[in-house]
Amino acid sequence: MVPWFLAINESDLDDGEKKPLLLEGTKMLLVRQESSFYALSNICPHMNCPLSKGILDEYVIQCLCHDWRFDIRNGEFLDAKEIKIDSYETKVTDGKVYVNIEK
């Protein structure tokens, strides 16, 4: 099975924007920053809040529930790097954004 799945059109998301997605049954958060796309689990590992409702500041997403902050580039929780949200590879081909759903 090819793990790459079409997520959105490149033009659907501007820099600094984020979007929740359901891809193959996985709740994901897609973020575009500095022209790159980042895909992460949309569920905060603390208490399952959707990160898509959080605040994006450069490469940091802050959960709206309890202000836990994660690096969108690798999913690391800023206050304890042992805690990570799943992050997924992305690629852009012909104006379309694909996500590799294998962690």
């Binding site: 603390h46 399952n48 304890a80 042992e82 805690i83």
Partner: peptide, 10 residues
Amino acid sequence: TMFQRIIDPL
């Protein structure tokens, strides 16, 4: 269940 996930890696 939720907190176990957090404390274990710590």
